[in-house]
């Protein structure tokens, strides 16, 4: 997704992080970086869901390098953003389907209500617009009207949706869909799954079964397993990633609902612990509201530096849409 990372995300992120920005401003307008201000800075980070441990580590770095010096608000913001971007840089990997696979099978997983179906709709729209042939599988056969929800997305973005009866076996459905996608020469096959709490071992086992069954047809499938995380989630996101990764070998993350007040600070801890690529972020309910993840933008937004340069070509690109 070359779409870049502009206005909507910027708007969303800056809004979501204004508070952190103002907090930082109020803490650090020209003053000595002393113990008290370090404590305050730590609290600002904690309030952004960094988690107490990560927040403390960041503060330690500051203590070592800048303790006692006169610092301005801007210096702190820049240094902090740099620190955060450094952590996020290695996991900033855009999602790129492999055109040779035909289809590139993408399995969407996550706990309930994180936005799996919406994200599939958005991704199908994006790659459909690029001229790729996309198909979707309504693998959430459990939740009421989940099939219809994906069907509406299919109609919106003009991609076929393969579905079964309510309560049907998701693994069997995925298997049939994979066969069909191969026959029809689809480029990408998105498989939606029912939301499930990661601590429900029976439900997690079901997810593993979808993969096992698909592999009977294509040993390499799924080619991507994307875990959809809600940005409002707190420290529990770590457990979510850990267990989903263990059970279904998650290959990358999508962070949704970044247009809200949640700041998604947990992403830093996730990057440190799991090094999983962060492919995209969701910044709204419309089909276009999906963006590539960018470490710099995210970090700048987190600390409230909203005047980050957005490359002009991208702005032009968006106007043409």
């Amino acid at each position: 997704m070359a779409l870049g990372f502009f206005s909507r995300l910027k708007e969303g992120l800056s809004r979501s992080t204004q508070k952190l920005g103002t907090n930082l401003t109020s803490v650090f307008t020209k003053r000595r970086l002393d113990e008290e201000s370090l404590v305050q800075l730590e609290e600002v980070l904690i309030a952004a869901d960094f988690g107490p441990e990560v927040a403390e580590n960041v503060i330690e770095t500051f203590r070592k390098t800048r303790f006692g010096s006169e610092v301005t608000d801007k210096e702190i913001k820049d240094a902090l953003a740099k620190e955060i971007a450094k952590v996020l840089q290695p996991v900033t990997v855009p999602f790129e389907p492999n055109p040779e696979l035909k289809p590139h099978v993408v399995l969407m997983v996550g706990v309930n209500g994180t936005g799996k179906t919406t994200t599939i709709g958005k991704m199908a729209k994006y790659f459909g617009d690029q001229g790729l042939k996309t198909m979707m599988v309504a693998g959430d056969t459990f939740r009421a009207a989940a099939v219809e929800q994906l069907q509406i997305w299919g109609d919106r973005v003009g991609a076929p949706v393969i579905s079964g009866k309510p309560g049907a076996d998701a693994a069997g459905l995925a298997f049939e869909a994979l066969k069909r996608a191969k026959n029809e020469g689809a480029d990408i096959l998105f498989i939606d799954t029912a939301g499930r709490l990661h601590n429900k071992s029976a439900l997690m086992e079901e997810l593993a079964k979808i993969i096992r069954v698909m592999r009977k047809f294509d040993e390499t499938a799924p080619h991507s397993v994307l875990l959809v995380l809600d940005a409002t989630t707190g420290q529990n996101a770590i457990e979510q990633v850990r267990i989903f990764k263990e059970m279904v070998d998650v290959s990358g993350l999508v962070i949704t609902k970044l247009d809200g007040t949640a700041r998604g600070g947990i992403v830093i801890a996730l990057a440190q612990q799991f090094q999983l690529p962060i492919h995209a972020v969701g910044v709204g309910e419309k089909a276009e509201d999906l963006r590539d993840f960018s470490a710099e933008e995210f970090a700048a937004g987190l600390v409230g530096n909203t005047n980050v340069e957005v490359s002009t070509t991208e702005v032009v690109e968006e106007k043409e849409e």
Partner: peptide, 15 residues
């Protein structure tokens, strides 16, 4: 409210 919500619970609940 989702029980897994992080610090954002403050903003959301408050507003």
């Amino acid at each position: 409210v989702d029980a897994m919500t992080g610090q954002d619970a403050v903003h959301t609940a408050k507003s």
